[in-house]
Amino acid sequence: MSAVTAAARPALPDAAAASRRLTGWARKVLRMVVTTATVFFITSFGTYALGALSKSNPAAAVLGETATPADIARMNHQFGLDRPLLVQYASWLGHAFTGDLGTSYFTSIPVAGSIRQALPVDLGITGLAALFAVLIGGTAGIAAALNGGGRLDRSVTAVCSVLGTIPGFVIGIVLIVIFSATLRILPAGGYASLTTDPVQWFRCLLMPSFALSLNLAAGIARQLRTSLVGTLRENYVVGATVRGLSRRRVLLRHALRNAVGPALGILTVGVPLLLSGSVPTERIFNLPGVALLTLQSAERHDIPVIQGTLLVTVATVLLCNLVLGALLARFTPQARR
């Protein structure tokens, strides 16, 4: 019995240390949640205020040029635009938390319904683009670091420098010319639901996602290459190699875990850029996403749709950043410290 007790004692400090690390991570995530909620409320108020304080008059736009001042005042009362701004915002945000984002001034279609149809397009493009960026950028960065100073390293650096300056919609046009107009193996536009036809869904989103991913992949590759080159020269990595550990184990278990932090930071910043970059991409590929819905609503001054799409976009970006930040804090030692 004493032998069992003695053998169990050394595990206690490790368990206590793991518990402290988990508690520290939970506190960090809680602070991130509070910060995210604060940013959400500030941004949502700014989003609503910009629409409410704009010079456009929704009532006059809906009624047309023949509307009298009395008709416009009556329509403003019907829309609730004659109330104080804070009262309007509180009512709008309260309804938004229940899923009610209002109704379009021009089509009378619920904004939430329009976003529900368009959001899967943006999420599909962003998700595939992030996946391509991680696979391409991660592979290129690791390969360049392992061949530091060599021909492959210089080639990866040069290609990433070029890709980092080319907008995604330009790459999209080139892909359409090659794979749609010339080879005719991928559709130049359109969209199919994932639940209805997964294969066609992937074929429709392959080119726009790939076009958006290359810029982010270049950033991930550069950051991962730089941090990994420095990490491979650290004493603990050299010591692990001297002890006879395999190169793959040293890379995956020791070096990469400590070097991946900057690359994850680039990915966290890149998610909002993917969403914002989808506006011209959806135009080019004729995809019915939230970005295109927002653009069309802005052209006709449909304030409820603009406010609803911006609110959902902000919430999506903040949620993605929160998840990526929590993963960064959990799996990278630098973020935990």
Rank of each mutant, 00 (worst) to 15 (best):
T139W: 07
L205N: 05
L322Q: 06
S161M: 13
L310D: 11
Q223G: 00
R20N: 13
V121L: 11
I220A: 04
P187W: 05
A181G: 02
G308Y: 02
R222L: 12
C204D: 13
L245W: 02
V312C: 08
T23Y: 14
I306A: 05
T107F: 10
L50T: 09
L275A: 06
G168N: 03
T23H: 12
S2P: 04
A17N: 03
V250N: 05
R257Y: 07
S227K: 01
H95N: 15
S56C: 04
T38K: 10
R337F: 09
T98H: 15
L328R: 14
L216E: 08
W92P: 03
K55N: 10
L135W: 13
A26I: 13
A67S: 07
L85A: 00
L310T: 11
L194C: 08
I42M: 14
C160F: 03
F285V: 02
A60W: 04
P84R: 03
L224R: 12
I303P: 02
G239V: 00
S44T: 12
Q334N: 05
A61Q: 15
I42K: 10
A17V: 02
G51M: 14
L205S: 01
I220G: 06
A70E: 15
A73M: 08
A240W: 06
F97P: 01
L212N: 04
G189I: 07
A90E: 06
F41Q: 00
F45G: 06
G325P: 02
M207V: 00
L146P: 03
T182R: 12
F210H: 00
V62P: 09
L274C: 04
A70M: 03
A143K: 07
R154C: 01
V33G: 07
T195D: 02
M75Y: 03
L146I: 05
R151A: 13
L311N: 05
R243V: 03
Y48W: 10
A96L: 12
Y89C: 05
I115C: 10
R116C: 07
R31Q: 15
A112G: 09
S276C: 01
T294G: 14
D122S: 15
A158T: 14
A259F: 09
T313K: 03
L194N: 09
T182V: 04
G164H: 01
G99D: 07
V314E: 11
T36P: 13
V290I: 13
V134K: 06
V177K: 11
E234R: 09
A17C: 01
V39T: 15
G80K: 03
R83M: 01
D302I: 06
S108K: 12
G148R: 15
N286L: 14
M1N: 11
I109G: 13
F40E: 00
R83Y: 07
G230W: 01
G124H: 02
A326E: 06
R116P: 02
D14F: 15
W92Y: 14
T38V: 15
A315Y: 11
R247E: 05
